[in-house]
Each structure stands twice: as C-alpha cells, then as structure tokens.
C-alpha cells in the first residue's frame, strides 16, 4: 500500500528534483545588476519555485492520503477512449522509430528517411495491407517533398552521398 503511494508520488519527486536543479542553474546566470531592479533570474526562479512548492505539496499529499484529485469535465471521454489495453511493445516501437528518424534524417535525407519511417510506422501500427502501406508511403513522402521544397520553400535535409544523389535526382524531375 505504502509502496503504491510512493510510486504515485514519484513523478512529483522527479519533477521537484528537475525544478531544483534548474533553480540552482538560474542562480548561476551572469549579468550586471542595474540598481535595485530585479535580474533575469527572477522570473524563471519564480516559476521554478512555484513548481517545486506544488510538487512538494502534491507529493506529500499523495504519500499521506494515497488519493489523487477529482476527475475533470472531459475525463469521462478520456476514460472511454482508453478502453483498449496499452502495449509497451507498440509504444517502444513508435518511440524507437521516431528516435531513429531523428538520428538518420540528415544521413539518408528527408525523402528516403520519411518513406522508410512511414512504411515502418504503419507496420508498427499492426496494419498489414501491404499495397496500401507502400503506395501511401511512397506517394506521401514524394508529394510532401515536392510540396515543401518546390512550393512552400522549406529547406529539408538532402542527406549525405550517396543518398543525397537520390534526393537530387528526384527533385530534378520536377
């Protein structure tokens, strides 16, 4: 019972520790004071101090009572929406793919990385309609690249050779 209460209070303890660390960092800001005026550390320290105080109160309250606050107005919907069981494996797959995308997009280039991501992310979502997945990913990645590179003029990563050659070849078609 007590360990359950501790686990409920754990997020607040972690947030308290993070806030305390940043509170310390705010005290290390280098600036030249101007008379009695408050410095650039005041505002972040105010927010961090408030955050620490709330985390402390909430954490202690949870440890002592083991009860969370009342649900809000739209929580009934959230509960209804959350009827399906959670799968850590699916979440891990989603997070891994997202992190891999971040790591590889500058290497593979936006076009290839996005195509690969869309294919793998669709499969990770338990979809097995192969033609739909490959076709929508290819069309999606291609159209998005054309739209943003040629119409909206957003600079997207080309990747490094040899992958950049493929990006250039594709963009050269339009």
């Amino acid at each position: 019972m007590f360990s359950q209460r501790l686990s409920m209070a754990l997020p607040y303890a972690i947030l308290f520790a993070i806030a305390a660390w940043f509170f310390y960092l705010a005290g290390q800001f280098r600036f030249t004071p101007r008379g009695d005026n408050i410095g650039p550390d005041f505002w972040p320290r105010l927010a961090l101090g408030a955050m620490m105080a709330i985390c402390l109160v909430q954490g202690v309250r949870l440890v002592l009572t083991g009860r969370d606050d009342e649900p809000g107005l739209t929580e009934g919907f959230a509960a209804e929406d959350g009827a399906a069981p959670r799968s850590s494996l699916l979440l891990a797959a989603g997070v891994t793919l997202t992190l891999a995308y971040g790591a590889l997009v500058t290497v593979l280039g936006f076009l290839i990385a996005t195509f690969a991501f869309m294919v793998l992310f669709s499969y990770a979502g338990h979809l097995r309609a192969h033609r739909t997945i490959w076709l929508s990913s290819a069309l999606g990645a291609g159209l998005i690249v054309i739209l943003f590179q040629k119409v909206v003029y957003v600079s997207l990563p080309r990747g490094i050779p040899p992958f950049s050659h493929l990006t250039d070849l594709f963009l050269g078609l339009f």
Partner: peptide, 25 residues
C-alpha cells in the same frame, strides 16, 4: 482509411513543422 497510415502522415507533418522553423535538426 487505416489510422496507422493517417498517423504516419501526422508524424511526418510534425517533423516538417520542426524543420520549417529554422531548418535545424
């Protein structure tokens, strides 16, 4: 349309949203 495909598009638009600000990884 399968939600897995729609979600992959949503993720890609999120990535573009990040790139489009300062073109920084």
């Amino acid at each position: 349309f399968p939600e897995a495909v729609v979600s992959s598009f949503v993720m890609v638009f999120c990535f573009i949203g990040a790139f489009s600000i300062r073109s920084s990884v």
